[in-house]
Design a protein around this nucleic acid. Structure first.
Lengths: 220, 220
DNA sequence: TAATATTTTTAGACTAGTCTAAAAATATTT
DNA sequence: AAATATTTTTAGACTAGTCTAAAAATATTA
């Protein structure tokens, strides 16, 4: 059984490895873990002994297959809990992260698989990020900004680029919520604003600013 | 913010205080916390400094109002999560406890209040134990053993006395699940076994052993 | 490539929570 | 009420995870 701290280190290292290539250095880990480099060295040695990552002094670390699998499990849990909070308990997009940060440490495979089923096997969390499957595979679904779609194309709102409360509240006020299907009606050559039709509603205008910050899964 | 360990101590002390009167002694705490008396002494001193309980050397401990409130919050969380697992994720009676033991430590008042609402403000958990309200009040509903009801009386299954997996599985096999309405048809003078009718089913026999371990809320 | 700057590691110490073994207080028995 | 048994506390040590300060390795610059 792994401690919360160990789990958080693995998740942090996974994220760093995702964006900045193969080997992750001590200082970078210290920064996102809000701790000191010396502490990271200690922990990294421990995780290395547990075969979760490979580590050579002064050379940075790299997750093993075991570590990678663990990181994906954490991310799966995190995103499923976020989806639960958003879909079932009506939390807003910006409230879910901190609570999911706690919930992702709950140990029970059955719990998370049942939750997955209860939520209808969602493919993306409320921020549009893909939810890894039971097998540890990420099914990456191509998401497009509204502004990238052509006239006549259809899509389902699946995420956002800008996560600010102000923006999320603006979307909600305009019925632009997760899961809604929309169709591109026309684009203005003047200010790149768009006219779109929301599923079961009348056509509305949205600014290019909005169109560049909402992500769609193409449909039809 | 309190640690998991501190929270578990407070919950344990509350439970002991419930059944065995006012002052709780060190060894009893050590036993249910699965630790040694020396460790209990240390922790109890700490909790005393935090005003969660009052403690006099060699005289045992007693929760303060603050400690009692905290214990009730823990119990509220525990029982709401158990209800969630049972009602929404279809866990069985005997599976919910261990996971709720982890979930009860999640820190978010909003989360637990939204969960309460999502579950329809349940009054009892899947074991029939009352769920403390937001205010910290326990609404105690009178529950009767099946064996205490008279012939012709009706009741809804609302809890159990014996919480063992073996017993809970036996009940499930015989359709004796939470929320089912039953009617007492007759009682045997020989072995105190009962004939009962389960809502929407045919009459069945149950042993006195079963009848003494299932709790009903009277109805009609 | 020598000097300097940066990064990483080591050494030793601290806290929370636990332990064992022994001492102190309380309870029970005779 | 003295002897014995039990319970509780103290003292000192251990582990996980953290820290600071200093040493060692690596990287950068002139």
């Amino acid at each position: 059984m792994y401690s919360f701290t160990e789990e958080n280190y693995i998740k942090a290292i996974y994220k760093l490895q995702e964006k900045s290539g193969i080997s992750v250095n001590t200082n970078a880990i210290a920064e996102i873990m809000q701790t000191k480099a010396a502490s990271v060295t200690d922990m990294v040695k421990k995780l290395s002994e547990k075969k979760l990552l490979s580590y050579a002094k002064y050379k940075g670390v790299e997750l093993t297959e075991l570590g990678r699998k663990m990181a994906l499990e954490m991310i799966r849990k995190h995103r499923l809990w976020e989806t639960f909070l958003y879909d079932k308990l009506n939390f807003s997009w910006d409230e879910v992260h901190d609570i999911a940060e706690q919930l992702e440490h709950i140990k029970s495979t059955k719990l998370i698989d049942c939750l997955d089923e209860f939520l209808g096997f969602p493919e993306n969390d409320p921020h549009g990020d893909p939810i890894p499957g039971k097998n540890g595979l990420i099914q990456r679904i191509e998401l497009y900004k509204i502004s990238e779609l052509g006239i006549g194309e259809f899509g389902v709102i699946s995420g956002v680029v800008n996560h600010s409360s102000l923006f999320l509240q603006h979307l909600e006020k305009n019925q632009l919520v997760l899961g809604k299907g929309i169709e591109i009606i026309s684009k203005s050559d003047f200010d790149q604003s768009l006219r779109i039709k929301i599923e079961g509603g009348i056509p509305i205008m949205i600014s290019n600013e909005v169109a560049r910050n909402v992500l769609l899964k193409k449909s039809r």
